[in-house]
Design a protein around this nucleic acid. Structure first.
Lengths: 353, 353
DNA sequence: CCAAGGTGATTAATCGTTTAACCAACCATA
DNA sequence: TATGGTTGGTTAAACGATTAATCACCTTGG
């Protein structure tokens, strides 16, 4: 590998071949008019001299940095790695770099982070908004990954349908009394999932939603969810709205001596890394983050290209991939419902199996 | 908020005040000789006109982009969010942007990712290497976060000492037969932790290491660890080398009807988000990632500044913060050892409590 | 034979900052 | 009154790529 000779510039290539630097630029970008043979020679020379384009110079001249910003809410979200990975990959193959901005904490931080990105001259940004927050209209293309029910959303999983899938899965296992476990009422994603779950479970299933946020407000963060009481009450299914809550439910049930899935089923959303290695592995829904990332980057790319022409609209919209399907990962944390004392007689109606 | 008028340039400020652009530059950077009053006027004008420096132009002129790269191994590492967050924060307050590069998969990917970063013109990079991989000498300052025992390491937690702390904790609870659970023999971090644990547990404690990697090679990924057998064998402590393994151990034990911490204690490393919300919450060691990030960024900053002067050494080294202490988070997954059938009579000797 | 059009390349300006070099005052010292 | 040092500023040349404008030359059609 060539040692650290400072990389060649277009001017140097031009000088080496006795042509003008404009010709080199044209040949390499394929834009102007250059004869095929000269173009080939230039390309070869560029290769040999180890030409590396100067992003700084290009950015200065064209006003485009080739970098997009990635703004994530509360970075502690365990899904972050997968999102970041997917976006980085999609962006890289579209020729973009990804600058991260953490918007930990309050919404003000999110705004500040966005500001920093703009100052750095990103061409656009992808934002996974904090629940309940709206992105102000900044003078830069933005793609938003949130939920189909969020106005301005660009691309996201079909959380509702995911809920439906899980609901059907649980219903088909015979569960007739299910506790839905969510955290925040403000989250569109969580609301979608809850709605889907209810729809998927159907009318015959009795279900109730436990908002952990409310519970923690009175009993303190990390408090017990009191699930064994629910089991005693006849609940056999516990459908959490994301894996972290599912894990919390699972361990609490296990600690209280309740067997999962024999006595109670537990399900989650997102398929986080550990979901498959705990005992029992958690039944959950996997988001197709690769597709989402591709859509987001593509939409953003279009918006960036368009913003050159018409400086009008600023939010990239792409309706055709607003609801990327999630896939159900059935594992061992869900199983046939235990014989419930509460369940009524007519349980054979519409048996899904 | 001012709408989208293209931000003012130095030249415009200069024109507005009837001075030269060089003077504006000097006033704003505080470098050249400018009278105090003119300097103030320029600063004010800059403020009023909404001046935003062009990073691109500056980068072109100075050869510095003000951006550092962050290369992470296998992004699925659940610690990633916290690292990224800490680095981003430290970098932001040092005036750097952070470009991410995922090096998922093989070492080749890591090299490719590094290459992309270099092409983008990062001033330096922070690498959390894949276990067992060495970073080739690229022509850019690099700070490495790995383990004190890794040659070339720049800054990291004192994993060994963390192990010692946890070992002492378990020993003081009376555990005399402890299973150490690790994943890969190639990981310096894991080896350090194991070493520290053994040291902290002391001579009197019988301990054995379970390498999950080996186990999975024969029994498949995500297989059971067979811990209940160990409990029957007299093991009362299960010290995992990171929280994911601890969680795996915890759920497996619970599933098998073993009460944690009454019958067995479980501990981990890293204090991941969920460690505190599972039941029981996991006793673990928290890394001081803020400090590590600051050290890394600072070291990198020095290396970048120095690389200007002497283009000699390329790896940023900073011995004085190679072993950032970890703090023990005692929670409910560890408790006094159950009465062990195997433990010998003289168990009152050197009781730490 | 001349105007028109196409081809393949060059010239030179430009993006916004930084910085070395230069210059015009002004003050003090010899 | 020359000489030399400060002070406060200006000029102009970079940095490297892009691109509109221009040019020389060749072909073709009328």
């Amino acid at each position: 590998m060539s040692v650290d000779r400072p990389p060649a510039t277009m001017t140097e290539i031009a000088a080496a071949l006795g042509v003008s630097s404009a010709t080199v630029s044209n040949a390499l970008s394929g834009k102007g008019r250059v004869s095929a043979e000269l173009s080939a020679k230039i390309r070869q020379a560029a290769e040999e001299l180890g030409y590396v384009p100067s992003h700084a110079a290009r950015a200065l001249r064209t006003g485009r940095t080739g970098v997009i910003g990635l703004v994530l809410p509360d970075i502690s979200n365990p899904l972050f790695p997968q999102i970041a990975q997917a976006i980085e990959q999609a962006a890289a193959s579209a020729g973009f770099g990804v600058l991260i901005a953490d918007s930990r904490g309050e919404i003000a931080q999110q705004t500040a982070a966005i500001g920093r990105l703009i100052e750095r001259g990103v061409d656009g940004m992808i934002v996974v908004p904090r629940r309940g927050s709206r992105i102000a209209d900044i003078g830069t293309p933005v793609a938003i990954i949130d939920s189909p029910s969020t106005p301005g959303n660009t691309v996201s999983s079909d959380h509702w349908d995911g809920g439906v899938q899980m609901g059907r899965h649980l219903a088909s296992l015979g569960h007739r009394k299910v506790l839905l476990i969510a955290h925040s009422r403000e989250s569109n994603v969580q609301n979608d999932r809850i709605g889907g779950l209810r729809a998927g479970l159907g009318k015959e299933v009795c279900c109730e939603t436990l908002w952990v946020e409310d519970l923690e407000a009175s009993k303190g963060a990390g408090c017990a969810l009191g699930l064994s009481v629910r089991v005693a009450d006849g609940f056999t299914g516990f459908a959490a709205v994301y894996d972290l809550l599912a894990l919390r439910a699972l361990t609490e049930l296990q600690r209280d001596g309740i067997d999962v899935p024999l006595q109670a089923s537990v399900s989650g959303f997102d398929d986080l890394v550990w979901s498959s290695v705990v005992m029992p592995p958690i039944t959950t829904l996997r988001q197709d983050l690769a597709t989402i990332a591709e859509c987001a980057v593509e939409a953003l790319g279009h918006a960036i290209a368009d913003s050159e022409a018409s400086a009008g609209d600023l939010i990239a919209a792409r309706p055709d991939c607003e609801g990327v399907p999630m896939t159900l990962m059935v594992r061992q944390s869900t199983g046939p419902a235990a014989i419930s004392v509460v369940s009524d007689a007519g349980n054979a109606r519409e048996d899904g199996r």
